[in-house]
Simulated scan of single mutants.
Amino acid sequence: MPTRQEQLLDAAIGILGTQGIRALTHRAVDAAAALPTGSAANYFKTRDALISAVVDRFVERDRVAWETIAGFVRPTTPAELAAALVAYVHRVLGPERAVTLARYGLFVEAALHPELQAGLAEAAATIRGWGTHWLRAAGSADPERDSAAILDYLDGVILHQLTYPKPIEQLEDAVTRTVRSLCTLG
């Protein structure tokens, strides 16, 4: 059961993903969390403190989600890795679309406010580590480099698909071709 503070931060992530950063106010968070007015302000005295806490909560939720993925995804071939990544893209563009939009909103905030970057960078490094392991198992000649390349590529693909979507089959084909080429280049 989430704490009251976690409820507020989860509501804030929901606001970011459905209404954008401009809508993120203490009052909006209170309403979205169905808590009394002033609840968010009691925990987060300023909007900057709220955004900083949202980044921390987002990183924690993202870590748990990726740990779950890493616990059951064990690709050993380029085809298996491509299928796992295509499934991930489907999830973040479908049922987790609002969380994905919140992610990109936080990326923009971190670009404007460097003090937010450390937590996001640490989370990215952990995810790249899992990617390195998967790419090594799938036959990559340089799994660290390829992990960075494929995860950066996926970020771009996901952002483009959110902004100006293509038919999903084109996206699946592009991800599959990219993963296979990274795993077969020497």
Rank of each mutant, 00 (worst) to 15 (best):
I69L: 10
E80A: 06
F107L: 15
G129D: 00
P143T: 01
T126E: 14
A137C: 13
P75W: 00
G139E: 01
R136H: 15
P114E: 01
R128M: 09
E115S: 12
E122M: 13
G129C: 02
I69Q: 04
L135R: 03
L81Y: 02
V108Q: 14
L106Q: 08
P95I: 15
A121E: 11
V92E: 06
A84H: 00
H133I: 15
A118D: 10
Y104F: 10
R91N: 10
L85K: 00
A137P: 12
E115Y: 06
V92D: 03
A121T: 13
T77G: 01
D146G: 06
G139F: 03
V89N: 10
A110V: 07
S140N: 01
P95L: 15
R103Y: 13
W130R: 08
G71L: 02
R145K: 11
L120Y: 06
A83S: 01
A98N: 09
A125G: 05
T126C: 10
S140R: 02
D142N: 05
L81V: 04
Y88D: 10
L135E: 01
A138L: 04
A118T: 13
V92S: 06
H113A: 12
L120N: 08
F107A: 14
V73N: 02
L85N: 01
H133N: 15
F72I: 09
W134V: 07
E80T: 03
G119E: 04
T132C: 09
I69G: 05
E144S: 15
V89P: 07
L116T: 04
E80K: 00
E122H: 14
V99T: 15
E96C: 03
V73W: 07
A124Q: 11
A138W: 00
P114K: 04
D146F: 07
A79V: 10
Q117C: 13
T68K: 08
I69W: 09
V86H: 00
V73E: 07
A123C: 13
V73H: 07
H113E: 11
L106K: 07
P143W: 06
W130C: 08
G139T: 02
E122L: 15
A124P: 10
P75Y: 00
L116R: 12
G71F: 01
A87K: 11
L85M: 05
H113R: 15
T132Y: 08
F72A: 05
Y88K: 10
A123D: 11
D146P: 06
R145F: 07
I127V: 09
L112T: 08
A79N: 11
P143D: 04
G139D: 01
G71E: 02
P143V: 03
G105K: 08
G129L: 00
A70I: 02
A83C: 03
S140D: 00
